[in-house]
Simulated scan of single mutants.
Amino acid sequence: MSNIKKVNCPRCNKEVFTVVRSLTGAESARSKYQGICNQCITPEENKEMMSEQAKAIINYGGGSHSPAGRW
């Protein structure tokens, strides 16, 4: 099964590709903004999405799975 799927932007119906599961662990951002193309997403939405992704990465980095512990 592929981790990428083809969907239509819910705002303009443009065909886009999206991930099935968030790569950063930001599932709430993925589900909220999934499929919205880069022409339709607002700067505010993009900022919120990036912020949620950054928080998920930081939280992941502090866990036992952190790659930092191996460097």
Rank of each mutant, 00 (worst) to 15 (best):
M49R: 14
P67F: 07
S31T: 13
Y60Q: 12
V19Y: 14
E48Q: 11
S64E: 15
K5R: 13
G25R: 01
S22V: 02
G35Y: 01
A54Q: 12
V16E: 02
Q53Y: 01
P10H: 07
K55D: 06
I57S: 11
I41V: 10
R21W: 06
V19N: 14
Q53K: 13
K14P: 04
G69R: 03
E52Q: 13
S64I: 13
N38H: 08
S66Q: 00
C9V: 05
V16N: 05
P43C: 03
I58D: 02
A54W: 02
G61D: 01
R70Y: 11
E52C: 00
R11E: 14
I57N: 09
G61R: 00
Y33A: 07
V7Q: 03
N3F: 06
V7R: 05
S66F: 00
P43E: 04
S51L: 09
I57K: 12
K55T: 07
A68F: 13
R21C: 07
E52I: 06
I57T: 12
R11W: 06
Q39H: 10
I36V: 05
P10S: 11
P67C: 01
L23E: 15
I58E: 09
P10Q: 02
P67D: 04
T24R: 03
I57E: 11
R30C: 02
C37M: 01
V19T: 15
P43N: 07
V19L: 15
N3M: 13
Q39L: 11
K32H: 11
P10N: 05
V16M: 06
R21V: 15
S51W: 06
S31D: 15
P67A: 01
S22C: 08
V20H: 05
G61H: 03
L23A: 13
K6W: 01
I57W: 06
S22I: 03
G63W: 05
N8K: 15
I4L: 13
C12N: 08
S22E: 05
E48L: 06
V20K: 15
R11C: 10
V19D: 15
K6F: 00
M49K: 11
N13C: 10
K47R: 14
A26M: 03
S2P: 14
N13G: 08
S22T: 07
S28R: 14
Y60K: 12
E45S: 08
S66H: 04
I4Y: 09
A68V: 12
E44R: 07
N38E: 11
A29C: 07
M49V: 06
I41N: 04
N13L: 10
A54P: 00
V19W: 12
L23P: 10
I36S: 02
C9P: 02
G69Q: 04
K32S: 06
R11L: 14
K5Y: 01
P10G: 03
